[in-house]
Design a protein around this nucleic acid. Structure first.
Lengths: 203, 203
DNA sequence: CCTCTCAGGTTGACACTGTCAACCATAGAC
DNA sequence: GTCTATGGTTGACAGTGTCAACCTGAGAGG
């Protein structure tokens, strides 16, 4: 085994980096091939470690997937938050946030599906990131309400409505179930903007 | 092996029924345990046949799952269509259809997730059922428009909007991502009705 | 009535997976 | 200068999807 000495060298070169490498590799496998293609052994292989090394960093496969999901959710959440801050009006910020949410789903459908799938084992990182995102959205809705661009009413409920349409349109589009009858196809972004227009008209 | 003779007897008792048995068993395993719990060998075991018998009816695991999804989609589609026909107003029918869609997602989240997941191998049954459902929804929207209860505009696009909110709210609720911040929780059904109210106000 | 086909079933094998157990090496605290 | 915990290793095991080869009896065709 020639790789043996390499592995030993790598081991002390990189220190704690292996854990991040594993997450990175797993994310790559997830993107091309879906969650079924993420196999612990292949992850180890591509990271240049043995088939059991991942168990030194993650309790089991679920834990690795949870780490992948948490990292992606945190990153995209931060990116959205930052982009939102650049916008002037609450209305524009709302549209931007939902647009980025949708773009994320369309660019990385497998990650999106993983993040918003059913989590048997719950990771505190995941729920924290999710709650933070929801809180941000509610803030945006409240601002839009004071701007008179959204109707009055419970902002939490209104935020849920906006998010539901963004999530639903994104999920349907990402899985190919949205514009199956070719003609009157509308992009998820257009649907969200339609909703905002209707809501403004109803305020 | 005592079951041997039984199996032989069963074989000629049931004729073609085995295929349906396999789908039934697979659906049961899907409901409790998710798609990961659906294993061809266990399906065969519970159906009382050998671990390879499923291959006489389905090309591979994906094909079995596609059959499960197609059957469930067709059944629920028919049930929704029938329920809709009992309603007087287009508005009530629309709410009913979305309500049943949501109830389906909440009662059988794993089936829902399977049906509306990513289909690498596409089954004609599946796409046919999906298109039929969308056509029905568009018809409902058009009727609601002539009733003046929905704003004018492309009915396909409006149908996509309504369906997106139903799908998104159902998916978020089924996966536990909807009302994570306890207080202002709204049920998916309420969100759909909220949307219909806003749309009526904006017409 | 005999034969032949073939759908539906069987056993056996293979590579691959998640996971457990036991062992190993070294960086760094004491 | 020894000890220990961390991150690594190999080996094993049961379970999985799938392929190949074989079997069996219901029913069509003569």
């Amino acid at each position: 085994m020639v790789e043996r000495s390499e592995a030993v060298v790598r081991h002390y070169d990189r220190g704690m980096g292996t854990r991040d490498d594993l997450i990175e590799v797993a994310t790559g496998l997830l993107d091309r091939g879906g969650v079924a293609a993420v196999t612990l052994r292949e992850v180890g292989r591509l990271a240049g470690v043995s088939h059991n090394a991942p168990y030194k960093h993650f309790a089991d496969k679920q834990a690795l997937l949870a780490a992948v999901a948490a990292r992606d959710l945190a990153r995209h959440g931060a990116a959205i938050e930052q982009a939102v801050r650049r916008k002037r009006s609450a209305r524009a910020a709302l549209s931007e946030a939902m647009g980025r949410y949708i773009a994320w789903a369309l660019e990385y459908p497998e990650r999106f599906r993983l993040v918003f799938g059913r989590w048997t084992v719950e990771s505190p990182e995941l729920t924290a990131a999710a709650e933070s995102a929801q809180a941000g959205l509610i803030g945006l809705v409240e601002a839009a309400q004071t701007d008179g661009v959204l109707p009055a009413g419970d902002p939490v409920r209104l935020a849920s409505l906006v998010r539901s349409v963004a999530h639903g349109a994104a999920d349907l589009a990402a899985t190919g179930h949205l514009s199956e009858s070719g003609k009157g196809h509308a992009s998820p972004q257009q649907l969200v903007d339609d909703l905002l227009v209707y809501l403004q008209a109803a305020s």
